[in-house]
């Protein structure tokens, strides 16, 4: 059972529709107690980093997430903002602390690139770095996913990066570190390639 964490931001419906389409059992998690019955978690997200952390705090979800992800080692997949939340901190609208499950920072694309539109929006290629469980069985030419973001993850430990993408610079598009997974793109909006990523995640024990 995959629990989709609802912290009142982002498009839960799209993620749930995608899992339903794949016949993957799922449930929406509103409070910490509901995490217990989930084997895996998805942290979706659209919106601002600071607001999302505030919401997670207000809903008292942080302790539950830490217990199940860091101690019980349940696999978690952060999507877009959800991936960024897994990091130490973000510079989006002032500095904000994240969930600190992955070492590194979330930085502004605008500060790095001046000649390209920000947000980075559209379909872009992901290049595998190391061996990615999420990209398993997806042919290289089909590793094109839908991105919408203005900030990007910069992992301190390069070994956790499983995919990178070029947009004025090369940024970390995917991380995989034991039970912690993240995609900067939206698999739920990336057609068959995106569905394949979700399927790969669901297959991880």
């Amino acid at each position: 059972m995959i629990g989709i964490v609802n912290y009142r931001m982002g498009n839960l419906a799209s993620v749930q529709h995608a899992l339903n389409h794949l016949n993957i059992a799922n449930t929406i998690v509103h409070v910490s107690a509901e995490i217990e019955k989930c084997d895996q978690l998805i942290l979706p997200g659209v919106g601002a980093f600071g607001k999302a952390m505030e919401a997670l705090q207000e809903l008292q979800l942080i302790d539950g997430l830490s217990e199940h992800i860091l101690h019980k080692k349940k696999p978690v997949l952060g999507l877009c903002l959800g991936m960024q939340l897994l990091f130490d901190q973000s510079e989006e609208m002032g500095d904000h602390e994240g969930l600190k499950m992955t070492k590194g920072n979330v930085r502004s694309l605008k500060n790095e690139i001046s000649r390209l539109p920000v947000p980075h929006m559209g379909w872009n290629q992901v290049k595998e770095s190391g061996t990615s469980a999420l990209l398993k069985n997806i042919p290289e030419e089909e590793r094109v996913f839908y991105f919408v973001h203005s900030f990007y993850c910069d992992a301190s430990d390069r070994n956790v990066v499983s995919g990178t993408t070029e947009y004025g610079l090369s940024f970390d598009a995917m991380i995989e570190n034991e039970n912690i997974f993240g995609c900067q793109f939206h698999p739920e909006k990336s057609q068959q390639s995106g569905l394949a990523v979700l399927k790969n995640f669901a297959a991880i024990q």
């Binding site: 498009n11 799209s14 995608a18 339903n20 839908y146 919408v148 990336s190 995106g194």
Partner: peptide
């Protein structure tokens, strides 16, 4: 939005914030 796993854009006749909220909540990107 139940069957389409791609970015969706909706337009025409959108006049209020309530219209926008509803569409985004239900899967419009």
């Amino acid at each position: 939005s139940r069957e389409c796993f791609m970015p969706l854009t909706l337009g025409g006749g959108i006049r209020t914030m309530e219209n926008v909220d509803f569409l985004i909540r239900n899967g419009a990107d």
